[in-house]
């Protein structure tokens, strides 16, 4: 499973970071980026779905899996 953050849509709410710091980090403006190329470690699939479903900007998607 892989996730992708759309940097153009992200507005830095950082909700994904607070829900899943193992999957994403945020830059100086709070904008998110994927850790380890977006690869979701085994066991964190539910977390990945959770951050997709909680992004107010519809900026995160599952690209594989």
């Amino acid at each position: 499973m892989k996730i992708k953050v759309d940097r153009d849509k992200c507005e830095g709410h950082s909700r994904c970071y607070s829900l899943a710091p193992d999957l994403v980090d945020v830059d100086d403006l709070g904008n998110a980026f994927e850790l380890t190329d977006g690869e979701v470690p085994a066991g964190l699939e539910d977390r990945a779905n959770l951050i997709v479903d909680n992004c107010p900007e519809f900026a995160i998607e599952i690209v594989e899996g």
Partner: peptide, 9 residues
């Protein structure tokens, strides 16, 4: 841009 870095998690 000037303000946001002071309010990240």
């Amino acid at each position: 841009k000037a303000l946001l870095p002071h309010f990240t998690p």
